[in-house]
Every structure is written in C-alpha cells, then in structure tokens.
Amino acid sequence: MPLWVTKSDRAALIDRAPWARVDDMDWQDIADGREMLIRGGFRHLQTWRCVPSSVRHCLEGSGGHCGSIHADWFLPALCEPPKPPIHIEDLIVTSATGESLAVFVPSRHNPRTGRHMWVPVKDCSTWKDMAGPTRLPKEPSHEPDDDITFSSEELDRSCRAGEEHLAYRSDPRPLRDFGQPTGGLTLPVLPMRPANAGAPVAVTDPERAAMAAALDCKPWELGPCIGCGQFIRRFGRNAPMACRACREAWAGSQAR
C-alpha cells in the first residue's frame, strides 16, 4: 500500500492515492528534530444523532434536525471532542501494523469520485458496518487538472542550506486539499416501539451499528426505553431502563 507524502495542498496525487500532507518545514526545524504533524489525509469517523442538542448540523441541508443518524469523516482538530494530532512517523508505523488503514469513500452525489484517506482500523470497521465495503471507482471521472505533466530541467547541484528569502515559483494547479467533510452517510430514523409493546422492532444491522456508534456503546447493548420506546443504551453495566427525558419526567411527577 503506497503512502504519498506531500507538503503542498495542490499536489496532483491528493485523493488519487493514499496520501498525507505535512507542513513545509525549514531544514533547521528538521535538523532540530521537530515532529511533522499531518495536516491532511488522516481522518476520524464521527457519528451523531441529528437532534437539537447535537453540536453538528444536519447533513441533508434541511436547516433543522431530521432525527436521523449521520456519520462523516473529520480531521482530528475538527472532531467533537478534538482528537490528538497524528505525526507522520506514527502513521508510517500504524500503516505497517494495520492500526491505520487506507480507505476510499465515494462521493454521495457522484460515486465515481471520492476521497482517499487514512483512518483508524476501528473507525473503518464501524464505517463498513454502516455503509458496506468501499471500492475504488472503476472509471474515475475526469477532472480539469487530471493531466499530470513533467517538464525536464537541468539538475541544480548547488547547496541551498541556510539561504533565506528564496524566490519560489507560484503553483498554477488548483487547490485539492480543502479539509472539508466528505459528505458522509445518513441512515433513516430508527423506529420507536410503544411502551409495553409485545412485538420487537426490526432493526437492520447498519441501523444498529450507527445507533451504537452515536451512543458510544456496543450494538448488543441497545434496547428500547421502557417509557417512550426510543433506542438507548439499555443493557450492560450501570445501564438505565429509561432514557434521560423519561427519567426526568418521572422525577418531576414524583416531586409534585
């Protein structure tokens, strides 16, 4: 599995192969042992329920809250709560050990396009449970800057170490690393079972995986609230039998 490392947010191989972008560091910083943070190409999966209390907006652009489960990929600094930064040295090791995987996430609007990224293996497993296996597009759509050209220049053998204020030519290529979310995935609203209903509600495996990720619990710990019937973390150590809203309503009625 290749790992292309670049210092430019306009590099032609961004989203065409597994990649990572680092800062353009001076040779003095490299000699001093400064760690190289990954600025693009590594993401974490975030799953949330689209309700008014959510800190994230609705992926469907409804302007409100649809009640569905959303999942999308974010840079570490944009996660809720923020994740610690990843160093290129760590990615090299974890990509070899299998703790970090290279995945391709197709675009929601055009499955022939999408984004390459490195992700934690746990997040990749959760994503596959919700979205199914991701595959490379058979015929990637042509983009205006798809043509990669090479212009031969005579090799400059002079040492530039220590020189300041070097004049660099501007890069005419368009920006490729925007750092924006991928567009994500939306699963339908989970069905609710009326309290004391006898028949269980049929929930698909992707729906169960998405709700478990949103509630930060295991899929087998899900169950219906005995009050309103919505799915909560019902089973496991210290798991409640009713959701917070039902417990607060019950406590209020007892106080009266």
Rank of each mutant, 00 (worst) to 15 (best):
I88H: 10
P82R: 05
T149W: 08
F150L: 09
T47I: 09
M25E: 14
S141I: 06
H142M: 08
P81M: 12
A71Q: 14
S151F: 05
T47P: 00
R115F: 07
G64E: 13
C66K: 05
V22T: 15
V55Q: 13
F104T: 10
E143Y: 10
T47S: 10
L78S: 12
W27Q: 13
W127A: 14
D29R: 12
W73Q: 05
M25K: 10
P76M: 06
P106M: 09
A131K: 06
S141M: 07
P137L: 04
E139V: 11
T113S: 14
T94H: 09
C58G: 05
S62Y: 00
L91E: 11
W118P: 00
V55Y: 01
I88V: 15
D123N: 13
F42A: 01
L91F: 07
V105D: 13
S141D: 06
A131C: 14
A131G: 12
R56P: 01
G40Q: 11
P133S: 03
D26Y: 01
D24S: 11
P137Y: 01
T126R: 10
I88W: 13
E60P: 00
G41I: 05
G114A: 07
E143W: 10
L101Y: 03
L37K: 06
D146A: 12
C58D: 14
I38C: 05
A102H: 10
G64P: 07
G98P: 04
A77P: 00
R43K: 12
P84C: 02
H142E: 12
V55I: 07
M36C: 06
D24W: 10
A131Y: 04
W118V: 04
G114C: 04
S151D: 11
P133E: 11
N110P: 00
V51D: 07
V105S: 13
M36L: 10
V51Y: 01
P84H: 07
L75T: 00
E60M: 12
E60G: 12
T47D: 03
R115C: 08
V93F: 08
S95I: 07
I148Y: 03
C66F: 02
D129C: 14
L78R: 11
F104V: 08
P111Y: 09
F74M: 09
P52G: 05
D129A: 15
P81T: 13
A131M: 08
V121C: 10
C124L: 05
H116L: 03
D146V: 00
L45I: 02
V55N: 05
T149Q: 11
G64S: 15
A31P: 00
R56F: 12
K122I: 12
P111A: 13
A96L: 14
C124I: 01
I92W: 11
D26H: 06
V51P: 00
